[in-house]
Design a protein around this nucleic acid. Structure first.
Lengths: 196, 196
DNA sequence: GGAAGCATGTAAAATGTTACATGATTTT
DNA sequence: AAAATCATGTAACATTTTACATGCTTCC
């Protein structure tokens, strides 16, 4: 009557985010939570009920392993995890999958581990992402130009409709500029590598 | 052992979004879903299991009421809802509450109904929102200037750390520019109204 | 003396997603 | 003949949030 189509060991953004932190240095669960919730703050949050079960799943999947248990006598013991080779591989594969259009958070989480993948692969990903933003930007602009009244009164519903779309345009334009800057750096890196 | 601190008739973003649509014109549930999911797309989504129970709750709370049931013989009957006076009041009050820092979606959902509130109140809200973005922008800039290596290799983790923060900076700057444009329009409107 | 920080975890509740159900009409 | 659109709704499942539990130490 009802069939679960989800795979057995389904990985989600939280698990990949934890992998992304451990790809940089071994950490305890508590430290990972601190880094996610306080790193510049207001971007991505995690809580205990997501954190500890996720670590268990990552361990079961063989993507991370316990490196040590630190005990400082006056504080609770800390379980320090490190990433495995297959964990790195899984993380790299995830980074290179293009997120759904408009899924800004997933895109940024992946970018946080972009240093792991080959520059030419990263260029391909960023080009596709840039195209998505360009298409969305065109949609927004068409929508705005479809309104006959260009300068509605502030108490006209159309005023709010337009202002919300204009915010969307501002975000898309900012994203495209960022993509262009990233592509510049990466292409220069590739060119330099070929020279030498 | 466990106490529910949530109030009885707690309203969420979905319910206010529905109110925001009905504040513009009477609609059926099906039409509301279409507008939310297809209006420019990729911004906010809703499904049947959120939609229909939400409409019942809004009706129970007295914020919307059934206007008519349209029957076209060859298609299922449509229940057309309209917003009530207390629904408008609830919506206005929600629009003027400043969202949590970084809650971009809620801010935009509120802006969609900003045409309903007095320009001077809207100016106050936008000023506070702009200050939040300015503070976040400063945090990001400080973070970046705290790194000694300014131009790390693309395969250095710091390269990704910086690029993610730079995306944050781009978004914050775009938001501030948008706020300034909105504030300009609203202040000019207020000045014109006082003149006449 | 109470609050907050450290550190791991679990339980309960709220919210969100996916699938199913109905049935006529229109499109492919 | 199958698939999609219209239109309302419910059931099952997955995810996220909030609260609780423990216990020791340090700060106010």
């Amino acid at each position: 009557m009802y069939v679960n189509l989800r795979e057995e060991n389904f990985m989600n953004n939280i698990q990949y985010t934890l992998l992304g932190l451990l790809a940089r240095e071994p950490l305890s669960g508590y430290e990972m939570k601190q880094q996610i919730n306080n790193r510049i703050a207001h971007f991505y949050k995690i809580n205990n009920n997501q954190l500890y079960p996720s670590l268990s799943k990552l361990e079961d999947a063989g993507f991370i392993e316990l490196q040590a248990i630190e005990q400082d006598s006056y504080r609770p013991p800390r379980k320090i995890y490190r990433i495995t080779t297959s964990g790195i591989d899984a993380l790299k594969a995830w980074v290179l999958e293009l997120p759904e259009i408009g899924d800004h958070d997933t895109f940024l989480l992946k970018q946080y581990s972009a240093w792991l993948v080959r520059p030419d692969a990263l260029i391909g990903l960023l080009e596709k992402n840039k195209e998505q933003h360009e298409r969305t930007l065109e949609d927004y602009k068409e929508k705005i130009s479809s309104f006959q009244e260009k300068d509605p009164d502030v108490s006209d519903p159309l005023f709010s409709t337009i202002s919300v779309i204009e915010m969307g345009i501002a975000i898309e334009e900012a994203s495209i500029i960022w993509c262009n800057r990233m592509l510049d750096v990466l292409r220069r890196t590739l060119a330099n590598r070929k020279e030498t």
